[in-house]
Amino acid sequence: MNEPAAQAAGSHDKVIGDVMLDVNAITLRFGGVVALNNISFNVRKHEILAIIGPNGAGKTSMLNVINGFYHPQEGEITFKGNVRSQMRPHIAASQGIARTFQNVALFKGMSTLDNIMSGRLMKMKRNFLWQALHFGPARKEELEHRAFVEKIIDFLEIQSIRKTPVGRLPYGLQKRVELGRALAMEPELLLLDEPMAGMNTEEKEDMCRFILDVNDEFGTTICLIEHDMGVVMDISDRVVVLDYGRKIGDGTPNEVRNNQEVIDAYLGVSHD
């Protein structure tokens, strides 16, 4: 990233608001395996929070708990003031939580446009019979949604693949389409599971720019998992570090960088 842009991004004059999502004492077990052990942290409105940690630390499990895929045995989650111990994915979605997946989960045979349109499903009011007729109010509704989706396509600079089946796209672009689909939900909280995995430097830089722009222009709160430390330190406001299902660090990138326990976890100090 060149200098003026970095200055602009790093200026952080944005106002980080109140707690939006509060994760309180979550414990998740799979049989005898403790995937998450008494984890608590919060996500504040308008911030970019990164969850990092070595392989198997429980990062993806944490995201799955937040959007209701997994149901923790203990603890509770408060989202926008509502306490929920058992959140289901579709409820999470209707409340404004969108996510992307570590292994791209798009409809491979459908075009970029249709994939992103599918993100608007929650917002469509007409039932499928109306939509099948594509007439009157259903048509009007679809045009409005299409206009919104076109804004996302423009935002993510994917005009040239609008009509291309997603399965034919390179990995980096698929990731971008997936982000587009999540954005189509107009989420308040966006969960990104390794948005930059498997990308080359240039694609990573693009993705960083998009994440910052989303946060900046739409005011979306973002919680992301990432392995690339450079990226994490660059774009996040706060970092939560997990290791073997425990939280071992929580703070600004600088605080975390200097945390001895985090250093040990990454450099591999023995756990006995």
């Binding site: 200098e3 003026p4 842009a5 602009a8 991004a9 200026s11 935002f155 720019r209 900046d216 222009e217």
Partner: peptide
Amino acid sequence: VDKVLEIHDQCPSIKTVIYCDPKGLRKYE
């Protein structure tokens, strides 16, 4: 805009920079 700002020091004659697409430029001071 980034390119122009990068070399602005060498070109003090530039008094105005105008952009068409505001994307990403809202925060520039």
